[in-house]
Amino acid sequence: MARRPDPDPETASQTAGPYVHIGCLPSVAGFHAVFDGDLGASPIIEGAKGDVITVEGKIFDGYGDPLLDGMIETWQADAKGLYAGQAGADPKVPGFGRRATDAETGAFSFRTIRPGAAKGQAPHIAFWIVARGINIGLLTRLYFPEDNHSDDPILSRIETAERAKTLIAAKIGDAAYRFDIRLQGDGETVFLDM
């Protein structure tokens, strides 16, 4: 009988700390000489198919104060629900974005296209959040308020509507959404282990 060897443990996470920008968003830290620019500056390239939208928000801590030193990464599908690297995906949708929360206001914002539905799931954008005080990156998702979520494997697993609501962005304009993330306390965002 072939026996499956035990997998090695994953390397342990440590906080990104307050200076994550130096390594991940160097232009935010004032570095312009070392690299050609920040990675994830836009999830789309000009000419991407689909409806252009903007997303803005803040990340709040347990006191209700916005994080001024956090970093968000986003990962999303193209307008047909295909991810970069999958056959047939729109080459103008790299799909990866990175943003710092503003050092004074805590706000982040980005421009992208509205993703299509990946197989069996409602349209969504994955968010990964790191900051000082966060020992291991927090994974969550933004869903859109106008979609039907009844068959989505994640939203349908959340037991209370109140909790599920934390993953649904607010529509604040024709093609503009607001997605606030609460790390702790009232309205705490649902975080995912997937």
Binding site: G62, L67, A84, G85, F96, Q121, N135, T189, D193
Partner: peptide
């Protein structure tokens, strides 16, 4: 700092989907 930046509800544990199984290149 972890005291005010740590979620208190358990994580929602699910099998990975295509979203987590693909990634930027």
């Amino acid at each position: 700092t972890s005291v005010t930046r740590s979620p208190r509800s358990p994580l929602l544990t699910l099998d990975s989907t295509v979203t987590e199984e693909t990634g930027p290149v």
